[in-house]
Design a protein around this nucleic acid. Sequence first.
DNA 1: ATAATTTGGTTTATAAAATAAACTTGTTTA
DNA 2: TAAACAAGTTTATTTTATAAACCAAATTAT
Lengths: 96, 96
Amino acid sequence: MFPTLDPLLHSELRLAVMSLLISTEEAEFPYIKEQTGATAGNLSVQVDKLSAAGYIEVEKTFKGKKPCTICRITPTGQKAFEAYIQALKAYLNITK
Amino acid sequence: MFPTLDPLLHSELRLAVMSLLISTEEAEFPYIKEQTGATAGNLSVQVDKLSAAGYIEVEKTFKGKKPCTICRITPTGQKAFEAYIQALKAYLNITK
DNA sequence: ATAATTTGGTTTATAAAATAAACTTGTTTA
DNA sequence: TAAACAAGTTTATTTTATAAACCAAATTAT
């Protein structure tokens, strides 16, 4: 009846991050921070969780002399995001 | 960009309860428990929260000699549910 | 030159939430 | 009348989300 909602995605900030990455394919940490309005600390933690789950990959490079953290969604992450949307539909009463 | 998701609704069990009540208009505690698969304790807590927020109303009656707890969604609850769905859309990239 | 500020984060501590286990009250059944 | 059951509630535990504090390097101001 009500499928479980992937707890990794059922989180406001992580969902926002995934939402951004689904459409941009690649985004830098400060950009995600600005778009989501999150604090750096919170974002850092949530990015780690998504990365640990294999939903995104995180590349640490440099932009000139400044460190630069780039995030990309993985195929696993895309599938999980799609599945989450499908599961949500059971809750949102599309059965009107 | 990403609107805040009503924390009262952004909870798996509370969302399931609201989802049920949106379509049934009235449901007994044991029925909700069965449909959601929740434990009685968890359900009791979450029903209290929805009730405290004015999203549902809880009527305690008897069915013969047995206590019977009936839940109904309120107009406030209906509006909040609709608003939650709208807010979610910003996260789910309907912009394909 | 060096002190102060900014950038780009991470780590740690705290507050809030979700969840289940344990308990209560009354009823039905053995 | 003792045991089991129904319908919840309360309490305790675990998880989670979040921000505050921190760190290192680079840039800017004095």
